[in-house]
């Protein structure tokens, strides 16, 4: 039973990992291609896509949000550990617990408020392609929800293993 549960979690976690990878990889590749093609069109063909900036915007927002979650998964976010290291073990555990909770609070509030922000964007549309802004904004709650998941997953490790020597 126990093993089954962890098997299920592993599969789920792998799935999330793949999702983040696909999100980062496709959007990033898309931006590079789009910007390159735009330069080619403007310089060689003397014409431009007026819509490119809008597409570029949605791609970069999605890329940054997925990238942010992926960075959490890999422990790639910047955090300072010099001060915490000076405390005795109980102090360190207490500090790591409190800071973990505070981070979770921030992420949870952000997921909730950016979700509200997305659904309340209503009639707001981009000028060129008339894409509703909710398709731009929705990457904030999606990315941050993934980020929250990744962060919660790391909390036990964050507390137990103290501040790691180098992150």
């Amino acid at each position: 039973m126990e093993e089954k549960k962890s098997d299920f979690f592993k599969t789920f976690d792998n799935l999330i990992g793949h999702l983040e990878n696909i999100g980062v990889g496709i959007t990033f590749a898309g931006i590079v291609i789009l910007v390159t093609v735009c330069v080619f069109y403007r310089y060689v063909l003397k014409s431009g896509f007026m819509w490119s900036a809008e597409v570029q915007e949605v791609l970069v927002v999605a890329m940054a949000m997925f990238g942010c979650a992926k960075a959490t998964r890999e422990g790639g976010h910047t955090e300072l550990t010099a001060l915490t290291k000076l405390f005795p073990r109980t102090g360190r555990v207490a500090i790591r617990t409190i800071t973990s909770i505070l981070t979770v609070i921030f992420l949870a509030v952000f997921v909730w408020t950016s979700y509200k922000y997305t659904i309340s964007s209503g009639m707001l549309k981009t000028i060129m392609l008339k894409i509703p802004y909710k398709y731009f904004y929705m990457w904030l709650p999606i990315g941050m929800a993934l980020n929250l998941y990744e962060f919660i997953k790391r909390i036990p490790d964050r507390i137990k293993n103290d501040p790691p020597e180098e992150y």
Binding site: R42, K46, G48, E54, I127, M128
Partner: peptide, 8 residues
Amino acid sequence: KVRCMQDS
């Protein structure tokens, strides 16, 4: 090439 706002 004249810079223009994004508006068709």
